[in-house]
Structures are given as C-alpha cells and as structure tokens.
C-alpha cells in the first residue's frame, strides 16, 4: 500500500465521520441528501460482499466494516432519528436515472460475468455518480453549510488520491484496472467544479453558494 492509497482511505474515512458527527452534533440533517447517502450505503454493501468470502487483511476488514456501519448509521439518522429535519422537498434527484443505467452497464462491461464481480462493478460505477443527488440539492437550494463543504471536499479528495495511487501502481507495479480508473476519473471530475468553489470562495465564509 502506498501513501496515496492510505491518505485516500483516511480522507474517505474523514468525510464519513465528518458527516455523521455533523448530523449527530447539530441533531439535524438539513442540507444533506438522504438519496446520496442511500446510494453510498448501496455502494458499500454491493462492493464489500467479499467480507463474507475472503479475508484480505485486518486493515481491510476493519475499514470495510466501519464504512458500511457508518453508511447505514447515516441513513438511519436521516430517515429515522432526525427525519423531521430532513429536507426532502429539495432532495428531488431521480435516483432511478442513476441506478438503472449503472446496473445495465455493470452487466455489460465487467471483468467476469459472475454475481460477485457484477456487484463489485456495479458498486464502482454507482459510487462515481452517487454524489449527484447531493450536488443537485446544493445547486437547488443555492448554498451549503461549511461543514457540508468539508464533507464534500474530503469525499472528492479521496478519489483524487486514489487516482494518484493508480498512477503510482501503474509505474511501480505495472498494475491497472480500467473499470476502476475510468469510473474514478468520472467521479473526480464531478467534484472539480466544487473543488474550485471550495478553494476560491470557501475560505473564511460561513456558507458556500453554488451558482445555478
């Protein structure tokens, strides 16, 4: 494991914890897309089914369990515990427009036509676009709380660091996985507009406004 992969994982963990703590501390999930969080829970569930079939390392197992646990805890907080604060009127992205094409693509373009492999591919494709309901919600309301922008920053940084990890692995191990790389590039590109606003306008502001 190289430093980019490790910092990518930690960045991902930071994003997940930041969101969970934000909701817990403020007792509110205002401004958070429950749909994106359901998609992320679906991503982790379909990707980490190998927890049941193979053991890779203690690190690997621990992180997977934490990711899945936090994802479902977040969904629980949004749709059950703090349901009254959930801004469903602004969370109107049609997720079937993501899940259905992504499911079809996973069936068509994969490394091996087996259930676990298709589900893994599905999770990779779905993760690349799972943030869209959240970005759509922010563009609709026109603003995001600072802590939400930190969450998005770490979530975007994670896949960007993974891209560097894959470049590193290509040069030093001759390793590459086209499905992960293409989806990773798409995923990172979706955050670019946000990164720009985060860096140029996020500093010292209490709220980030994204022009529609």
């Amino acid at each position: 494991m190289n430093i980019f992969r490790l910092t990518g994982d930690l960045s991902h963990l930071a994003a997940i914890i930041i969101l969970l703590l934000k909701i817990w501390k403020t007792r509110s999930c205002a401004g958070i897309s429950g749909k994106s969080q359901i998609l992320f829970a679906l991503v982790f569930t379909s990707r980490y089914l190998d927890l049941l079939t193979s053991f890779i390392s203690l690190y690997n197992t621990t992180m997977k369990v934490i990711y899945i646990g936090c994802a479902y805890a977040t969904v629980y907080l949004i749709y059950a515990k703090f349901k009254a604060t959930y801004d469903g009127n602004h969370d109107t992205f049609r997720v079937e427009f993501l899940v259905v094409p992504v499911g079809g693509l996973a069936f068509l373009v994969n490394h091996d036509f087996s259930p676990l492999e298709i589900l893994w591919t599905f999770s990779i494709y779905l993760e690349s676009v799972a943030i869209l309901p959240q970005l759509f919600m922010i563009s609709k309301t026109g603003e995001a709380e600072t802590i939400t922008t930190h969450y998005l920053f770490f979530l975007g940084l994670y896949r960007a660091l993974y891209l560097i990890n894959w470049i590193w692995r290509f040069y030093f191990e001759g390793f590459f996985d086209m499905i992960a790389i293409v989806a990773g590039v798409v995923q990172t590109i979706l955050y670019c507009d946000f990164f720009y606003l985060y860096v140029t306008k996020g500093e010292g502001r209490s709220q980030l406004s994204i022009p529609t």
Partner: peptide
C-alpha cells in the same frame, strides 16, 4: 503487500 489486487483496495 506487494501483491495487492484491485479488490484489496477500498
């Protein structure tokens, strides 16, 4: 861990 596959990643 030189033999990482893509599945070893998160």
């Amino acid at each position: 861990e030189e033999t990482d596959s893509i599945k070893d990643e998160l």
